[in-house]
Design a binder for these strands. Structure first.
Lengths: 206, 206
DNA sequence: TCGTAGGTAAAACGAGCGTTTGAATGCTAC
DNA sequence: GTAGCATTCAAACGCTCGTTTTACCTACGA
């Protein structure tokens, strides 16, 4: 993580992601971050202006990719005529799984994202809604097409529940512990399979 | 909240709950807490010993009640011969709803609980598992009886997903905004109805 | 070769942190 | 009424926080 061929900005972002995931935004200090990144303390304010803005950049770095992949997968699923509910769910869920398994710290990012929900920060919510609201709209439309008998508002509720369960599962909040002999990757993939099966049945509920 | 007929300890616990929910454990200072509680700064260390211990007491105050109510409701549902899956889910979910609507700050506590999951604190997880693990066991047994064809491990996964979705819904993490003219109470009750319907279908999935 | 701009460095700023201290206060039992 | 105890209070402790300042390095175009 601290290897020298990453730029100062990249090393700060990586270290901040890890430490925000572990200790929270208030709990991780810039002195911890810069020490972990092996850069000078003043580098954060030089490159990012403030701690607040560093937090925003930690989000931007990952979310653009995540939601682009979701749209990409959704388009693929929509193109095929034989795609079902599980395929749509997979388009939404698997990119998050891939990110959580990314070896450059994506797993930490999912935990950061979960913290962001807990922060209940209005500015951040607006940022998420403004930048990624269209993704939710696209998925809603796709699901609505497959579930023509489901009330629109009811569908919104159910998608919200799925997003919550996904965040919870990917951030490893749950009580189910990984068994010895099962890799982290396998554990997460199983969680996704269970989640998709569960969510598909929930969506099909009358 | 600051009315004088509450004891100093009670006023500190109430103010701490609110501020931990809003700003997190690290983000809320004892100066903020004692100011909101209208007590002297030194009162926290006098009555609770440390900030760390104050956090523990905030949990203990609510969780004993919550899980006692869950067991109570579960026993009631189990006693009736015509009880179904939805009744069991209700026994698990409604006490959390009631707590979230409690006018003495229970709503804030649910958000504190969600933060605790995000903290990923091993000591806290052990505390929760030690003190309330038997509740999950009771519910697992009850669900297993109603779903004899469902694999035991599969059931654990699904209950974990439901707990995640519940935490997410009750802590108001979701993107669904309360419409004007709908009270907070009504909004939460609708969330619970949706959640129970969704979860019941998910549990019945093959 | 020199001037300049981009980046890094160490040190310090004022503010706020959790905690401790010791004196003042209120209450109860004698 | 007063001794003894629990509680409250103002003040201060040492420390860490995010941020700013100022000096220094280094590379590159003129």
């Amino acid at each position: 993580m601290n290897t020298q061929h990453f730029s100062t900005k990249e090393r700060i972002l990586g270290a901040a992601e890890q430490l925000f995931a572990t200790h929270g935004f208030a709990g991780a200090s810039l002195r911890q971050v810069t020490a972990a990144a092996n850069v000078n303390l003043a580098a954060v304010n030089y490159h990012f202006g403030s701690k607040e803005n560093l937090i925003n950049e930690v989000f931007r770095r990952r979310l653009d990719d995540l939601n682009a992949h979701r749209i990409e997968e959704l388009d693929k699923a929509a193109a095929r005529t034989d795609s079902d509910l599980e395929d749509l769910l997979s388009a939404f869920i698997r990119p998050a799984l891939d990110l959580s398994l990314d070896r450059t710290g994506g797993g930490a990012f999912i935990r950061v994202l979960a913290r962001a929900f807990a922060e209940h920060n209005d500015a951040l919510r607006k940022f998420l809604s403004d930048n990624y609201g269209h993704v939710m709209k696209r998925f809603h439309a796709a699901f609505a097409q497959r579930l023509p008998n489901l009330d629109k508002e009811e569908l919104y509720w159910r998608l919200d529940i799925i997003a919550g369960a996904l965040t919870y599962a990917m951030a490893d909040f749950g009580v189910i512990k990984r068994k010895t002999g099962v890799t982290e990757q396998t554990h997460r993939e199983r969680a996704v399979e269970h989640l998709i099966r569960f969510a598909a049945a929930g969506l099909r509920a009358p």
